[in-house]
Amino acid sequence: LTELETIYVTKEHLQETDVVRAVYRVLKNCPSVALKKKAKCLLSKWKA
């Protein structure tokens, strides 16, 4: 997740890969609050 925060991701990348699905899975299933927060921030950033 940290690496995903530092790289530039285009909408095309998100549509062509399962990155969003994987990050969403972390948000829903990971017991770590810190990782959930990171995943939520990434998804919000990409949605904007």
Rank of each mutant, 00 (worst) to 15 (best):
L1V: 05
L1S: 04
L1T: 14
L1I: 06
T2I: 05
T2S: 14
T2K: 13
T2H: 10
L4D: 14
L4K: 15
L4E: 14
L4T: 15
E5V: 04
E5H: 06
E5S: 01
T6E: 13
T6K: 10
T6P: 05
T6Q: 12
T6H: 08
T6A: 05
I7Q: 11
I7G: 14
I7W: 02
Y8G: 13
Y8H: 09
Y8F: 06
Y8E: 15
V9S: 12
V9I: 08
V9K: 14
T10Y: 01
T10N: 03
T10D: 06
T10H: 07
T10E: 09
T10V: 08
T10Q: 13
K11I: 10
K11C: 06
E12L: 01
E12Y: 00
E12Q: 06
H13E: 14
H13T: 11
L14G: 14
L14H: 15
L14D: 14
L14W: 12
Q15G: 08
Q15R: 12
Q15C: 11
Q15N: 05
Q15T: 07
Q15S: 07
E16Y: 11
E16I: 06
E16H: 08
E16W: 05
E16S: 11
E16R: 13
T17K: 09
T17S: 09
T17C: 09
D18L: 10
D18Q: 10
V19Q: 04
V20Y: 06
V20H: 04
V20E: 03
V20R: 06
V20G: 09
R21E: 02
R21S: 10
A22H: 06
A22M: 10
V23G: 02
V23H: 01
V23I: 14
Y24T: 12
Y24F: 14
Y24R: 15
Y24L: 14
R25W: 01
R25P: 01
R25F: 01
V26M: 14
V26R: 14
V26L: 08
V26P: 09
V26Q: 08
V26A: 13
K28E: 02
K28C: 09
K28T: 08
N29A: 10
N29W: 15
C30H: 02
C30K: 06
C30Y: 02
C30I: 14
P31Q: 11
P31D: 04
S32Q: 05
S32M: 14
V33N: 06
V33R: 13
V33T: 08
A34V: 04
A34L: 06
L35S: 01
K36P: 07
K36N: 01
K36S: 03
K37S: 06
K38Y: 07
K38P: 02
K38G: 07
K38C: 13
K38I: 07
K38Q: 02
C41P: 00
L42A: 02
L42R: 02
L43Q: 03
L43E: 00
L43C: 02
S44W: 07
S44P: 00
S44R: 11
S44E: 07
K45W: 12
K45Y: 09
K45V: 00
W46C: 06
W46Q: 01
W46P: 01
W46M: 09
W46H: 02
K47H: 06
A48S: 12
A48Q: 11
A48E: 15
A48C: 14
